[in-house]
C-alpha cells in the first residue's frame, strides 16, 4: 500500500528522498537565493562555472517536497551543461519531466527556475559582460520569485510590524 501523497510522481519523490547535489559549495563562483522562509519556500543555488558552462551546481531548499524535488532535479539537468542552455530550462519543462506538478505546486517549479536564472544573471553581471541571450528585463520566472518575496514581506510586516 502506498504511503505517499497522491499528487507527486515517482520521479519527484525519488528526488525528495534522495536529493542530488545537495548542500552548500565553498568554491562557488555565484550564489543566488529565491523565496524566503516567510513564503515557506526558499531555494539557494551554488554554481561553479568553467568556460560558460556549469562545472558544478548544488542547492539548499527550505520548502515543500515539490520544492526540494524540483531543485534537486534541476541541478541534475543542468550540471555540465552550457549556461545558455541552463538559462533556457523552462518551469513547464521541469513540471513535465517530473510527471506533472500538482497545480498548487506550480510556483515551486517556477521558483527553482527563477533562482537558477538569478544565479546565471548575477554571474555575468558581476563580470560586467552580460551575453545577448540574457534579456535586460527580468524573465517571468525571476519576476515570480520577486513577487513572492515581496508579498511575503508585506504580509509579514502587516502582521508583525
Amino acid at each position: 500500500m502506498s504511503r505517499t501523497p497522491l499528487p507527486y510522481s515517482k520521479v519527484l519523490l525519488d528526488h525528495f528522498r534522495n536529493p542530488r547535489n545537495q548542500g552548500p559549495m565553498e568554491a562557488a563562483d555565484v550564489v543566488a537565493k529565491a523565496g524566503s522562509p516567510a513564503c515557506g519556500d526558499m531555494i539557494t543555488f551554488y554554481l561553479k562555472v568553467a568556460g560558460d558552462a556549469v562545472e558544478r551546481i548544488s542547492f539548499e531548499s527550505y520548502g515543500c517536497a515539490a520544492n526540494i524535488g524540483t531543485a534537486s532535479y534541476l541541478t541534475e539537468l543542468v550540471a555540465g551543461r552550457p549556461l545558455e542552455e541552463a538559462w533556457k530550462v523552462s518551469w513547464k519543462r521541469l513540471s513535465d519531466d517530473l510527471g506533472g506538478l500538482p497545480k498548487v505546486k506550480f510556483h515551486c517549479g517556477i521558483l527553482a527556475v527563477g533562482a537558477l536564472q538569478r544565479a546565471i544573471r548575477e554571474y555575468y553581471r558581476a563580470r560586467g559582460a552580460v551575453p545577448a541571450w540574457i534579456p535586460p528585463d527580468l524573465t517571468e520566472e525571476e519576476k515570480n520569485a520577486q513577487e513572492e518575496e515581496e508579498l511575503a514581506c508585506s504580509i509579514e510586516h502587516k502582521l508583525h510590524p
Binding site: R3, L13, A65, A66, C108
Partner: peptide, 23 residues
C-alpha cells in the same frame, strides 16, 4: 523544516500528520 515536507517525510515512515503550512 517546512511543514508539507515534514508530512511527506513522516508519511514515508508510516506516520501520518497534517501541517498548518501554506503548502
Amino acid at each position: 523544516a517546512e511543514g508539507e515536507a515534514i508530512t511527506v517525510e513522516c508519511s514515508d515512515h508510516g506516520v501520518y500528520v497534517s501541517s498548518g503550512s501554506a503548502c
